[in-house]
């Protein structure tokens, strides 16, 4: 208990006479957004995420993944590339949704400390289309763009009913075919009360969990071994504050592109992607 307290005395509510669940900095409970994060990252969220293996099914079929060691390398590479890009998009989407939902118009004006990235220069619908185009430019494979939009559309449909929000409505209007999944996730996260960091964490986490559980099912791997792999992944390393949408990470994974396109052309498939 002493460690964190001495490391960060300023945010230790107890030393400031605040209730122990409050931070001094934001006035927000320390658990702020956590319930939303857990619900969004849960594979039981009825948004169709379980139907996607993120290339793992094809990698198992071709023998590129045959055991826990291959799977560990697959997951690390996926997190460092697609996961990093998804985290950045989710962070940006959540932050823009926060900016748009602030009651005072002031905070959206350029130059204001609260203004966010390109969100400040455009009306919400234009901004969503712009961020969605930035996602498109980072996903070369049409199969992956299709899978990303399908998952995004389902997530928006689900999230609108769980956490109704203006930002989810404008996103659905701006990108009727379904925004890319990380963008939908970022906006849903804001609606669920999450911070941009939490949105990015949910995106990083869900970028690997689908592939991991798919491999368990397809190869009959020990689920505990695979969960240990998931526990050891460096999620924090792919999450960073982002402001210039054009400069967001764009880490490509050529093998994932090949796997996604091959998978679409494979006759017997358990997963959509």
């Amino acid at each position: 208990m002493d460690g964190p307290a001495t490391g960060a005395p300023a945010v230790n509510g107890a030393t400031l006479g605040l209730p122990p669940t409050q931070t001094a900095a934001s006035g927000m409970p320390l658990t702020h957004g956590l319930a939303g994060l857990l619900l969004l990252a849960d594979s039981r969220l009825p948004a169709g995420g379980h139907a996607h293996s993120g290339g793992a099914e094809e990698a198992c079929r071709t023998g590129a993944i045959s055991g826990p060691e291959d799977l560990a390398r697959f997951l690390r590479g996926r997190l460092a590339t697609a996961g990093r890009v998804a985290a950045a998009l989710a962070w940006s989407a959540c932050e823009a949704a926060q900016a748009f939902s602030r009651p005072d118009k002031e905070s959206r004006e350029p130059g204001s400390p609260a203004s966010s990235g390109q969100a400040r220069v455009a009306d919400p619908e234009t901004a969503w289309r712009l961020l969605d185009a930035e996602a498109d430019a980072r996903i070369a494979s049409p199969a992956q763009r299709l899978a990303g939009r399908t998952q995004g559309r389902l997530l928006i449909r689900t999230a609108r009913r769980i956490w109704p929000s203006t930002a989810l409505e404008t996103l659905a209007r701006a990108v009727p075919d379904g925004a890319h999944h990380p963008i939908a996730l970022g906006v849903a996260a804001q609606a669920a009360g999450c911070t941009p960091d939490q949105a990015a964490m949910a995106a990083a986490y869900t970028s690997v969990t689908g592939a991991a559980t798919a491999a368990v099912r397809l190869l009959g791997l020990d689920p505990v071994t695979v969960h240990r792999l998931l526990a050891e992944l460096p999620y924090d390393s792919v999450i960073a504050e982002q402001h210039d949408w054009s400069a967001l990470p764009a880490h490509a994974a050529p093998a994932l592109d090949l796997l996604a396109e091959q998978h679409l052309r494979t006759e017997v498939r358990l997963f959509v992607s």
Binding site: I65, R73, G77, A80, A253, A255
Partner: peptide, 14 residues
């Protein structure tokens, strides 16, 4: 990058 090198998701054995 040790995270991505040799990953079947990124460059594989290429």
């Amino acid at each position: 990058d040790p995270e991505a090198d040799g990953s079947p998701a990124v460059f594989g054995t290429a």
